[in-house]
Amino acid sequence: MPDLIAKPALGVAPVTHAGTTLAEIPLPQIIAIAPYPGQAAAVGAALGLAFPAPNTVSESGGARLVWAGRDMAFLIGAEASAATLPEGLAAMVSDQSDAWVMLTLVGPRAVDVLARLVPLDLRAAQRGQAFRSALGHMPLVLIAEGEGGFTLLTFRSMARTAWHEIEEAMAKVEARLALSA
């Protein structure tokens, strides 16, 4: 059996424009959890986290349960793996670790950058909120981290395109600021 080596989707250095930094984050395990009808509270209790309401994130220790769509959440963190889930969990479970890329966008112009790409008004976004949306034409799970920071999850197969689109928007925001200086 060959030894498989985990590699980052992009393997690029962080970039900064207008004081805002885009970086690829090594993705920890990510497990999609879709509770059976009426079992969301029981699933949350079994995981030790509240099953998130729409557009929210619940956290405990190093694990996060991120709302990812109707009746679905992503369990992300060091403790998240299909092998460590409680036996008999009343949910459909799927390991999504290889399917996503995780990026962070942090800085005073993060909202301005995302305004060019995401059809949401994020000016009032607060830590603990999550949104299922689009980044240009790519699917996106966006997590507000507070203090001008966001975590972005998109499909790994679209990682280079997402990076390019975000970096281009960052450069345009920086150019706009240079014009008004």
Score class of each variant (00 low, 15 high):
Asp3Pro: 01
Leu4Lys: 03
Leu4Glu: 06
Ala6Trp: 11
Ala6His: 13
Pro8Thr: 00
Gly11Gln: 04
Ala13Asn: 05
Pro14Gly: 03
Val15Glu: 13
Thr16Pro: 00
Thr21Phe: 04
Thr21Asp: 12
Leu22Met: 03
Ala23Met: 07
Glu24Arg: 06
Ile25Cys: 12
Ile31Cys: 06
Pro35Tyr: 04
Tyr36Lys: 01
Tyr36His: 06
Pro37Ala: 04
Gln39Ile: 10
Ala41Cys: 08
Ala41His: 10
Ala42Met: 12
Ala42Asn: 11
Gly44Ser: 06
Ala45Trp: 14
Ala45Tyr: 13
Ala46Thr: 11
Leu47Phe: 15
Leu49Pro: 15
Leu49Tyr: 15
Pro52His: 02
Ala53Trp: 10
Val57Asp: 02
Ser58Pro: 15
Gly62Tyr: 15
Leu65Tyr: 15
Leu65Cys: 10
Val66Glu: 01
Val66Leu: 01
Val66Asp: 03
Val66Tyr: 12
Phe74Thr: 00
Leu75Met: 07
Leu75Cys: 13
Ile76Tyr: 14
Ile76Asn: 03
Gly77Trp: 15
Gly77Asp: 03
Gly77Glu: 02
Ala78Lys: 12
Ala78Pro: 15
Ala78Glu: 07
Ala78Val: 14
Ala80Cys: 10
Ser81Pro: 15
Ser81Met: 09
Ser81Trp: 10
Ala83Asp: 12
Thr84Val: 13
Thr84Met: 10
Pro86Ala: 00
Pro86Thr: 02
Pro86Gln: 00
Gly88Cys: 04
Leu89Asn: 11
Ala91Thr: 08
Ala91Leu: 07
Met92Thr: 10
Val93Tyr: 15
Asp95Phe: 14
Gln96Leu: 05
Ser97Cys: 04
Asp98Arg: 01
Trp100Asn: 02
Val101Thr: 07
Val101His: 10
Val101Tyr: 14
Val101Asp: 06
Met102Thr: 09
Leu103Ser: 13
Leu103Val: 08
Thr104Met: 04
Leu105Trp: 07
Leu105Asp: 11
Leu105Ala: 05
Leu105Met: 03
Leu105Val: 02
Gly107Lys: 08
Pro108Gln: 12
Pro108Met: 10
Asp112Arg: 01
Asp112Asn: 02
Val113Pro: 00
Ala115Cys: 02
Leu120His: 08
Ala124Ser: 07
Ala125Asp: 11
Gln126Asp: 03
Gln126Arg: 11
Gln129Thr: 09
Phe131Lys: 06
Arg132Asp: 05
Ser133Lys: 08
Ala134Met: 07
Ala134Ser: 11
Leu135Gly: 08
Leu135Ala: 08
Leu135Gln: 12
Met138Asn: 10
Pro139Asp: 01
Leu142Gln: 07
Ala144Gln: 07
Ala144Asn: 05
Gly146Asn: 04
Glu147Phe: 05
Gly149Met: 04
Thr151His: 11
Thr151Asp: 05
Leu152Thr: 05
Leu153Ala: 03
Leu153Lys: 06
Phe155Tyr: 08
Ser157Lys: 01
Met158Gly: 14
Trp163Arg: 00
Trp163Gly: 00
Trp163Met: 00
Trp163Lys: 00
His164Cys: 00
Glu165Phe: 13
Ile166His: 12
Glu167Val: 02
Met170Cys: 06
Val173Arg: 02
Val173Trp: 06
Val173Gln: 05
Arg176Cys: 13
Leu177Asn: 06
Leu177Cys: 10
Ala178Tyr: 15
